[in-house]
Design a protein around this nucleic acid. Structure first.
Lengths: 325, 325
DNA sequence: CTGAAAGCGCTTACAG
DNA sequence: CTGAAAGCGCTTACAG
């Protein structure tokens, strides 16, 4: 292993001190142009690359943030992570992606990385409880749910946009409107979808057909089948979640249902691709990019110990596709 | 910001020296049991977590490896990354995932992270050239392609398994067998698929219907349409790549082709899910887990400057689905 | 089995 | 605008 070139080598060879070399590396403007030029030459000549561990140790932060999602092979999370990556990069941060696989240990591991100064903070999409003691002192931002009273979160306007969707279905003449969703394991803003659904139906004196259960990833099709079995005569369904909506749509097609004539579907979370047959599912599209950027900036503020709002809501958009009248 | 608890605090409070504290943290067996016990108590009491940057600076390696894939929202890469994550974790390494998005700058950035000692090495799934100068001194392992003569790679047995697939199609009576694929930007083991196809057809004196082009991600459907347009009378197609196979299959269905009676399909890379109609595409399944583990151990050896084999081939499996006779 | 000390490579007041 | 020096928190020969 060849000995690493250090800032001291650059200093010696250029005839300046290490402090000055450090300043040109960090882009400090208080350096004479000629000095900068000379030092930059030597850096190139020696093929010097600063060791990040020295800097991190000294500066007491790493410039990396973690983002934790349950799974990554999923349209919402993939896009969310990508958007965070962009904004982080623009702001000089790099990203550590952790896929928790719904594993509490992996979630805890991130908290440890924060304590070990490996990362400066984390954006958490979690489905577990973490006690206050282990969270304490960890800069964290949550999405959709509040981990505890001190952790700020971003979320889309679950209540309002669901309400809008249900009202829309009613306006098209739907009479028997179902709700099909997977319930989060813990308290979350997502639960407001169910509440909005129920509120609107009650207001219009309509019967409800609700199925909202805790389901493991990969078991969604069973829930869909149970829903279909249980509520045979619904004429419209609000589906909370992309995968669920995909499955439900396929089942309806296979059963030969006419969409949207006999069955309307609105999905919370849009699919970005058309189906094989060119159809799009009508959906409430979450403002993923805004959520990502919001979460990022929130986290940076938390890291810098600024005051932040605990609740940060971003507006979704209803997109009419081919599955509603 | 509360002052960080350091190893020195633990040393003082426990009455031992920092060296001894360091030894119990690292699990060094040469520590008296009673000493270990006492120090562990103090660690708990002070809620001490070792700062990773101090250790990394001193040890001159980070214990993290990077893995770079073009996109992550893709069944092959998602699984590949997950498998590397598992094996890395088992071996005390952590993973930095980078999604290159086919962006050369992001690829270079990893090389920089290695030079900056942020990561110890990287597993590269790249589609670009990197000149030897910038790669030099960077512990790297490639998948499917050789970056240069010094970088070892893992790959599946592209030639043999393609050959097997084509032979299979012929054995079922297929006479006009097409090849549909996206060509890698750079030299790669993947190109052996085309070669195998051509070799087998020649051996059997059959006509070839080949379309293998460089295509941007997201533009695959255009290539598929062009293939269909160009080769109207093929009765079987070998499709190189999951996405392409999905698209081709859908198109055939839409066109009302009877599968496998009128059209057989074999895909290189399996889909793990059935279609809406319950059908599976016949495929050559790459040994993803073996590739992942192979790549990881190879990289560790490279990092530790051991001798390694440059070429590491793992065997694929042909899985008969519903798209072949 | 343990301690004292050097040193990993950087940044940052401080002084000039 | 620049240099000398302290120090970030750890590990690891070395000596005992």
């Amino acid at each position: 292993m060849p000995k690493q070139v250090t800032i001291l080598d650059v200093a010696n060879k250029s005839g300046y001190g290490v402090g000055t070399v450090s300043r040109v590396i960090s882009g400090d403007p208080h350096v004479k142009a000629s000095t900068r030029k000379k030092i930059e030459e030597v850096i190139k000549e020696l093929n010097f690359t600063p060791n990040v561990n020295g800097a991190r140790l000294r500066k007491k932060h790493s410039g990396v943030i973690a983002v934790m999602v349950p799974i990554i092979n999923h349209p919402f999370f993939a896009e969310f992570v990508e958007d965070i990556d962009s904004v982080a990069m623009q702001n000089g941060y790099s990203l550590l992606l952790v896929t928790s696989k719904m594993n509490v240990e992996k979630e805890r591991d991130i908290l440890n990385k924060i304590k070990r100064k490996e990362v400066d903070g984390a954006i958490f999409v979690t489905h577990y409880e973490h006690d206050n003691e282990e969270i304490k002192g960890c800069p964290l931002v949550s999405v959709d749910r509040h981990l505890n009273n001190h952790v700020p979160f971003v979320s889309s306007d679950n209540y309002d946009s669901t309400k809008e969707a249900i009202e829309y279905l009613i306006s098209t003449g739907a009479k028997r409107i179902g709700y099909l969703g997977t319930k989060p394991h813990v308290e979350s803003e997502v639960m407001l979808r169910e509440k909005a659904y129920l509120d609107v139906l009650e207001k219009h004196h309509l019967e409800s057909f609700l199925m909202n259960e805790v389901v493991d990833h990969g078991e969604e099709d069973k829930l869909v089948d149970k829903f279909i079995e249980t509520y045979k005569n619904v004429d419209a369904v609000f589906v909370s979640g992309t995968s669920l909506a995909q499955i439900f749509y396929s089942r309806m097609k296979m059963m030969g249902k006419k969409i949207p004539e006999e069955m309307q579907i609105i999905s919370y979370d849009g699919l970005f691709n058309a189906w094989d047959n060119g159809e799009f599912i009508s959906c409430i599209q979450q403002p993923i990019k805004e959520l990502a950027e919001g979460a990022f900036h929130l986290l940076i503020d938390v890291i810098n110990e600024k005051e932040v709002q605990r609740k940060n809501i971003y507006k979704s958009t209803f997109i009419k596709g081919d599955t509603t009248k």
